[in-house]
């Protein structure tokens, strides 16, 4: 537990490095929801190959790390199917309507001091905090 912040910082640096490579190499903003969403709804058809290569890296490297080290993080994910479906729909709709998520608005937006990125991050953090406050602390259902 004591080392959590070191893993957090180290992992965070890798995330930022990935964003830096995608920006300086391909001239693109590394936003997970935009890269996946544009592939799904067809709006990113002209860059489909690049998007697919990025997503392949996101899935395959953790898979390879898991195989090489024979251990994967415990995700503590809920087993409640209704919660998973509702949360997934909210995340999918919300990130595409807002045009970004934690990586696009959060990491890439804040680091260039984009007002929209900062505002979006503040709003989705507050909405998440409110969700936990109501559903966990007050109602005790998640």
């Amino acid at each position: 537990m004591e080392a959590d912040w070191i893993w957090g910082l180290g992992g965070g640096l890798l995330i930022g490095l990935g964003g830096a490579v995608y920006l300086l190499g391909n001239g693109r903003i590394m936003g997970a929801s935009g890269i996946l969403g544009g592939l799904l709804d067809g709006s990113g058809k002209s860059t489909a190959a690049e998007r697919s290569a990025f997503l392949a890296g996101v899935v395959l490297v953790p898979l390879l790390i898991g195989l090489a080290t024979e251990r994967t993080p415990d995700t503590h994910v809920t087993g409640n199917a209704a919660v998973l479906i509702a949360a997934g729909l909210l995340v999918g709709i919300g990130t595409r309507v807002a045009n970004g998520c934690t990586s696009g608005h959060g990491v890439c937006g804040i680091s260039r001091l984009s007002l929209r990125g900062i505002a979006a991050t503040a709003v989705f953090m507050l909405a998440g905090i409110l969700t936990l406050a109501v559903l966990r602390q007050i109602l005790g259902v998640i």
Binding site: I15, A32, T102, A119
Partner: peptide, 18 residues
């Protein structure tokens, strides 16, 4: 509005797209 919906879903399950 999109960020409100996203944040609610993020809090609900603890997962964002990445």
């Amino acid at each position: 509005l999109g960020s409100v919906l996203f944040g609610a879903g993020w809090g609900l399950a603890g997962l964002c797209p990445g």
